[in-house]
Amino acid sequence: MSHSKHVVSTAITAETIAESHLVAPEAVALYALGLGDDALILAQRLGEWIAHAPELEEDVALGNIGLDQLGHARSFLTYAGTAWNKSEDDLAYFRTESEFRNRHIFEQPNGDFAVTIARQFFVSLYFDRLYRALKESTDPTLAAIAAKATKEVDYHLDHSVQWLLRLGLGTTVSHEKMQRAVDAIWPFVGELFSPEAALRDLDDGVGVRPELLRESFEEDARRRILDAGLKVPTAPFARGGGRDGIHTEVFGHLLAEMQVLARAHPGATW
């Protein structure tokens, strides 16, 4: 782990990974690709908020969270791409819908502010558990990306918890909207903990088995939902499929928008 600690101190970024001439083993790359897609698609959704937040201070806050997520995405995708000699942009802009590996919760539309907060709350809690474990990875690059991300995600979780409380306990209107939002996002929570196929071919200690995060996640999620005066949903979890390239109907639209310009100028640099 001493190697990874060294990388952390120089704040790992997509650029430093690209310059390091590392080559990720194929299975590690597949694992990193899934994590990168999760962060990228969330960042894409958060980018839609800018200039539309409920207050200017919140535009700045959502912008920070989106930028952090984009940073994680770029690091994971750059690292994944080293296995196939592809850049982060090759992966982000020139894969088709079925080649994206992100789980469904990340592609869900922003909805109103309560829906965005519900989505951010669940995924931040998941990221918090995930990255805290992943920073102990035996793969120094994954460990370094996770170590940087842990600190940022800690703030994202705090931000969404603060809003969960305020909307849950604020007014009758906000309480109803927040409950509806938690209910709407809940079905997509289960997929976060479905097994990572990429980890089957890897030694223990490289990646984090999401199944193992579930108990601690659920306990914390329930407590925080109840603290906000809300009911824990009882609806069943939806079948996932994101890691296998099966996406919900909203995803094609998101991708079309994200890729439109890059695809109109193949081979161009920007």
């Binding site: 201070e57 700045v60 806050a61 920070n64 703030y155 705090d158 931000h159 603060q162 305020r166």
Partner: peptide
């Protein structure tokens, strides 16, 4: 929230 907003606004 004031502390958090200050962090986002004045320490970017």
């Amino acid at each position: 929230m004031a502390v958090r907003n200050a962090r986002d606004l004045y320490t970017r």
